[in-house]
Write a protein that binds this DNA or RNA. Structure first.
Lengths: 205, 205
DNA sequence: TTATATGGCTAAAACATATTAGCCGTGGAG
DNA sequence: CTCCACGGCTAATATGTTTTAGCCATATAA
């Protein structure tokens, strides 16, 4: 039925493997199960399909970051929580981040597409950095800043701490994109990392 | 003169920005300063140019990793060195790694091309992981294993330590690829990271 | 000097790919 | 029932791109 959506999905699936230019409208159509010219009943050009994917994913992504950043911005309640943050809490936080980043097919494919297209323009480079590096980094910087202020984390530069903490997440996410079959293994590594980080930098008051 | 080499260089320059499929032989030729058909006096197809870039860079890269890994494999001499490793030594090691990875134009462009093409085949995915993640990671894992054995590093899982240590390097390398103008800033961050790592995990015997 | 390999060029062929034109069956609204 | 919008199809067009064919100038070797 909803061909218009299926086109977006299949196009993204293809773009995220080979990149925009390597994929023909023919292939998109055939993945959907229709003929190329029929695509033009739904989108006015190939570029238009690309743009639609962009908007669709932007919407989904924004919805997600809204939910996650509320944890940090809602300072009142979190100040209380910080004191009792455990290693398990951190592990849990990372798990839920990964859960979303890896198991939402749309998000996953879009990230791969962005990886492929990131050097095409300054705009795309910036979007990539903002979305996949800075956003997660700022989140942890703020989190650690508060934890330090609350005396539950060693008093080191929160920006550096955050980088030490989240760079492995980013790198392993990349590894998962390349080798999804090893996800289980990577997740264990990541958990060990989080626990080592906690053990090293956390302090009880 | 050496048109054959210049074709490789200009093709790589273009591929590393827009990806293989987005670049036409026309553009490659014009970058070199000749007409498209003349390319075929040197390479038998566009794909052939791509492959040649691959071989050329593989050669350069292997040459480099040979030099760097000798530091670790030469166990005799290094055991002595490990004891007196300072934060400055680590900073220096990272600097020279970055120096090579960022300031060798060929290496830099090739890495960007790999970033773009990494999802095309299992082969490319594996090459990417091996070259840009595992190799550097194994290097540090071995380094830290020895340092732990020598008692100059906290006795934690060297694999996790290595990841904590080198993931920020990889992430910041990616940032440099996207935003070369911020290199200076990123290098400072990286230095802080190395020093914090040293301060945290190094111990004098 | 002559022959030949090299590496450039133009013109054209071969191929691919995005897009348009226009036809047709179906299903819901009036 | 009729009409029409929807969304599929085939055929064709427009455009672009890779590659081949074949010509020509130059430099080098015999």
């Amino acid at each position: 039925m909803d061909t218009k959506q299926r086109i977006l999905l299949e196009a993204l699936r293809l773009f995220s493997k080979r990149g925009y230019d390597a994929v023909g409208v023919e292939q998109i159509a055939s993945a959907v199960g229709i003929k190329a010219p029929s695509l033009y009943k739904h989108y006015k050009s190939k570029q238009d399909i690309f743009d639609a994917i962009f908007e669709e994913t932007a919407r989904r992504y924004d919805a997600f970051t809204d939910t996650i950043s509320v944890h940090v911005t809602n300072s009142e309640q979190d100040v209380i929580e910080f004191e009792k943050i455990t290693a398990d809490d951190l592990v849990q936080k990372v798990r839920s981040l990964i859960e979303y980043s890896l198991h939402d097919e749309y998000v996953c494919m879009f990230r791969r597409m962005m990886t492929i297209e990131q050097f095409r323009s300054r705009e795309l480079s910036e979007l990539y950095s903002r979305r996949y590096v800075n956003q997660i980094h700022d989140y942890h910087s703020r989190l650690f800043t508060k934890m330090i202020a609350d005396g539950v984390l060693e008093d080191e530069d929160p920006v550096i701490l955050a980088m030490m903490y989240d760079a492995p997440i980013l790198v392993l996410l990349g590894e998962c994109d390349r080798h999804p079959e090893k996800e289980e293994e990577y997740m264990k590594t990541l958990e060990s990392h989080v626990r080592l980080f906690y053990k090293t930098f956390h302090r009880d008051r």
